[in-house]
């Protein structure tokens, strides 16, 4: 021990200053993109810089972002859930049927979120319990959940929701701030704390980085994964309540294709699709970026199909730039 004591050197906790680490982060780059789009939009359209218009724009992303928070954790842990949009449809169908039967607003909310919980538990059981690959399982449950909606509804729609139910998708907490936006901010904080400040969040990162090492370190890998699927299902249920409330009706095609937009938001936010890395702050900024792009293009009367081309390009470019930049740096 004596020779070790004599050669003892102090290892610093961290390298560089806090600001230099922050400046090098993905989130700051993405924030820069968001600002650019904001400035561009405000020049391109005279209607953009209007508090109520901007408030309307948030509805483009709030519901998707709620799911994206939970999805981010799932992707960081090395799994994925492609059935989230189908869970929205099934939960919305369940709420529609219940509303038809005369159940009140609190009951509808419980049914919506409860359906999400059950669907999430089903996914979790198949992935964590039976150790099946999540991408296959959730492609299967995607067809299953939405298929049930189609069987129940056919080409019909549920539309008779109680008046008070409209608050979740159409109500405002204060001035231009909608209930959905407030919920989005609250959930961002809850998931941010869960991922970055708790033991559970650390376990999520370790599982995504090295599942073997996680298991060898005493982390209950299956239990963590099950909880993550449960959370994602619940968030899809919450999003279903908001979306159904906003639209005031349920069709089986509700939220069609949202699973890919949610995954896009997560990846754009800097979450590694291979697992192990990413932040909630990144997902929040990515949500704003996607919302601003679609809103700005909408003001310019760009059709929806062109918008999706833009979002796709945005995703590829933002992913490619840092990788190409690193390669150039390595070559020189």
């Amino acid at each position: 021990m004596s020779d070790i004591a004599s050669s003892k050197r102090v290892i610093p906790d961290r390298l560089g200053s806090k600001t230099s680490r922050l400046l090098a982060s993905w989130e700051v780059l993405l924030f820069g993109v968001a600002v650019l789009i904001f400035v561009f939009n405000s020049f391109a359209s005279p209607y953009f810089l209007n508090a109520w218009n901007l408030s309307d724009a948030t509805f483009n992303f709030t519901e998707k972002a709620m799911i994206a928070f939970a999805m981010a954790l799932l992707v960081i842990a090395g799994e994925i859930d492609l059935s989230v949009a189908a869970i929205i449809a099934l939960a919305s169908t369940a709420m529609g049927a219940a509303a038809q039967a005369g159940i009140g607003t609190p009951g509808l909310v419980a049914i919506g979120i409860g359906t999400g919980l059950v669907c999430g538990a089903f996914n979790g059981l198949l992935v964590a319990g039976l150790r099946l690959p999540s991408i296959v399982v959730t492609i299967g449950t995607m067809s299953l959940f939405r298929g049930i909606s189609y069987i129940v509804l056919g080409d019909q729609a549920y539309g008779k929701y109680p008046a008070s139910f409209a608050y979740f998708g159409q109500g405002y907490v204060a001035w231009v701030f909608s209930f959905e936006f407030a919920l989005f901010i609250l959930l961002a904080m809850v998931f941010g704390i869960l991922l970055h400040a708790t033991n559970f969040g650390r376990q999520v990162y370790v599982i995504g980085n090295n599942e073997f090492a996680a298991r060898f370190s005493g982390i209950p890998v299956e239990r963590v994964k099950f909880i993550l699927f449960l959370l994602t299902g619940v968030m899809a249920g919450v999003a279903s309540v908001c979306l159904t409330s906003r639209l005031g009706s349920t069709r089986p095609s509700i939220a069609q294709g949202w699973e890919l937009e949610v995954v896009t938001m997560v990846v754009l936010g800097g979450v590694s699709i291979l697992g192990g890395a990413g932040t909630i702050a990144g997902v929040v900024i990515a949500a704003f970026v996607m919302g601003l792009v679609t809103f700005g293009l909408g003001l310019l009367n760009v059709p929806g199909i062109v918008m999706s081309i833009f979002v796709g390009l945005l995703l590829i470019i933002t992913i490619a730039i840092p990788i190409i930049a690193r390669r150039i740096k390595e070559m020189s």
């Binding site: 370790v206 090295n210 090492a213 060898f216 370190s217 982390i219």
Partner: peptide, 21 residues
């Protein structure tokens, strides 16, 4: 590498992993 460590994660987070409690 395979069983003992999460290589992309910081030293201190690897060290504290089984002692998080």
């Amino acid at each position: 590498g395979r069983h003992g460590l999460a290589l992309p994660m910081p030293i201190f987070q690897n060290m504290s992993l089984p002692s998080l409690g």
